[in-house]
Computed example of a mutant assay.
Amino acid sequence: MYKNLSITVVIPCLNEEQGIEKVLSRMPEFVDEVIVVDNGSTDRTADVARSFGAQVIREGVRGYGRSYKKGFSLATGDVIVTLDGDHSYPPDAISYLLEAYLHLEADFLNASRFPVRDRRAMSFKHKFGNLVLSVVMSLLFFRWIHDSQSGMWVFSRKILKDMILESDGMAFSEEIKIEALLHPTARFEEIAIMYTSRLGEIKLNPWRDGFQNLFFLLKKRFARR
């Protein structure tokens, strides 16, 4: 519990044996529930997660968004916190983010990776791609977003029921932010965090995923609700 709020952390994983150990070893004690969604790992990701007391759920259909939707469906906390299993997002920043979430009276808090202070954490190509996608999203939805592709969020579980979440892939990251912005009563806020270089293999395909996310933004903007 954190200030009378139960906290669930949801972590999607695909072959993150090295990173998940680092993440879970730094998980704050006040977190009530940790759900690791194993998206078909062939290494010891699931075993390592269980050894730290995490609830491991297997999602057989590959996809970043698919994993998150599975994890969210099983979350029981008042507040859901997300981060990746590769140790690029700081688990010990969760208390800092929760304080900001409460202070700003937010319903959805996005953890922006910018400015990137660790030079090894993100290549110029990835920075440029993120900038393009964030600018396009900001223009389409009339709200400046510093980091449309961030994978660390803090939000009230109750707003999920009003969200239309369709993406099973990497576009899920921008989609959930769009849904928070379009939510009739939710307050969207953003705050910067420290982002570091990942552990393990890189699974993002910058050109393919970048163009798919750009197309998804346009589709989401002009789709009927």
Rank of each mutant, 00 (worst) to 15 (best):
H183L: 01
E29I: 14
A93T: 12
D84G: 10
S25D: 06
I145N: 01
W207A: 11
W153S: 14
D84A: 09
K70E: 12
R225T: 12
F108K: 04
G40I: 08
E29H: 13
K69Q: 15
R157C: 02
V48K: 08
F216P: 00
P206H: 04
I80S: 01
D168G: 14
S197Q: 14
I164G: 11
F222C: 00
P28N: 07
M152H: 00
F188G: 00
L217I: 04
I191P: 00
S167C: 13
K3D: 12
V10H: 00
K177I: 13
S134T: 05
L74V: 15
R50M: 13
R208L: 11
L181N: 04
E105N: 12
G60E: 14
Y2H: 10
H126P: 07
L214T: 05
N130L: 06
L5N: 15
K70T: 15
L83W: 00
Y96Q: 09
F188L: 02
P28I: 06
F215R: 14
F188E: 01
R62N: 12
F215D: 14
G85Q: 02
L5R: 14
I191T: 12
M122H: 04
R187T: 14
I178D: 02
K220N: 07
A49D: 01
S6G: 13
I191E: 08
D43T: 07
